[in-house]
Design a protein around this nucleic acid. Structure first.
Lengths: 212, 212
DNA sequence: TAGATTGTTAATCGATTAACAATC
DNA sequence: TAGATTGTTAATCGATTAACAATC
């Protein structure tokens, strides 16, 4: 019953709903109205109902929403139940921290390979996965067909790697670099993580409060 | 000449402008029109002019914008030229990676303290800064009055620390945890970094392409 | 049945794009 | 001066909120 072309603002709110519904489940709450959920999440009940109705009606008039059922529906919408295969490139500080700390399985991904060019890093085992040399990337991808790459390498090294990966069939990129993938590869599915941009936004809002 | 209440969408585009103007400078380009910049950044010229005009007129009719001057104006708008003092709490994988990799100085922050509760981590030196025990947080903050905290600790430990920090005068939070600061502390300035949410959004868009 | 709350339509609000007069 | 391009106003588009009929 999905209606075509769902706004990216709606999509980006779904993971937060998913997290809050998980917390409700842990609290043993099995049923919630849009009004109650709105209060907990600091949203409007209207927005919550509009958001869910983009994907079909998951509630029941006079009752509200079943927490467990709604959470499963969102998991399915987000694809968490059909994991993508991912590789991570650049096992430096950030790459290693991401590989170790992020629970890929619970977010719809299976991390199947790690790559770096430094001999001192190649061979290390992170999260039960050995770090492979970047020169073996082609072979690995032809065999394992990962759909997604997590990019944690220096900006300058990124463009040629992305080009290579796209030729190998990689469709999605979690981009920790400041290289702008979308400009050169408009068909790639890209999610950017820019700490620096976030810090600058924070800086603006702090000064806004302090100055003048 | 700033007009009141600038949209957060405009603010969030500023760091990207800042980065692109830096690249133009490196290329030796000293002058650019909104049309040319729009082409490079994949935006509309209209939006670029509207964005800059939220803060006053930085261009010149018939000429365009002076790259260096515009970049400096944005740096000033974002507060990059008046650094905030920041502390980082939780020096595990993520915390250490952030401390080591992120160039705080160039983003308007000065990282002056690192804190953890683990004895095995306390005393380590990261980026020329020793990791202090979390029990010394009060004393340190009263002496050094940091305005900002980077939170890289487990979700469950976060709420009491945020409460403590707010009492100590900390105003801004770079939040790597999935604890929702804004719900309990509505006056805090918060920037969230949720890898997990980003992965789920990526998952959605990959399935959108692949399925049906 | 009566009360509650959804799903959905209509109204409002805000952001983006288009157009053009001002001006360098 | 003529051409170019901004700053700014007006038009359009999209997202959020409000209202309410449908229905459990």
């Amino acid at each position: 019953m999905t209606k075509g072309a769902i706004s990216s603002l709606v999509i980006r709110r779904m993971p937060r709903y998913y997290r809050f519904l998980g917390e409700l489940q842990e609290e043993g709450i099995t049923r919630i109205s849009s009004r109650e959920l709105a209060e907990r999440m600091n949203l409007t009940a209207s927005q919550i109902r509009q958001d869910f109705n983009c994907f079909g009606g998951f509630g029941q008039q006079g009752y509200g929403y079943n927490v467990g059922m709604l959470r499963e529906e969102i998991a399915h919408i987000l694809g968490v139940d059909r994991p993508q295969t991912a590789i991570l490139i650049g096992v430096g500080n950030i790459g290693k921290a991401v590989a170790k700390n992020v629970n890929f399985e619970s977010k719809g991904f299976s991390l199947i390979g790690l790559f770096d060019e430094k001999e001192s890093i190649v061979g290390q085992v992170v999260k039960n996965t050995p770090v492979r040399h970047i020169s073996t990337l082609d072979e690995f991808c032809r065999e394992n067909k990962p759909s997604t790459a997590i990019l944690c390498l220096p900006k300058t090294a990124t463009k040629p790697i992305v080009s290579q990966l796209i030729n190998l069939g990689v469709k999605g990129f979690m981009n920790f670099t400041s290289y702008d993938i979308a400009l050169d590869f408009p068909n790639a599915v890209v999610e950017n993580v820019h700490f620096g941009d976030g810090l600058m936004t924070l800086s603006y809002r702090l000064h806004e409060k302090q100055d003048n």
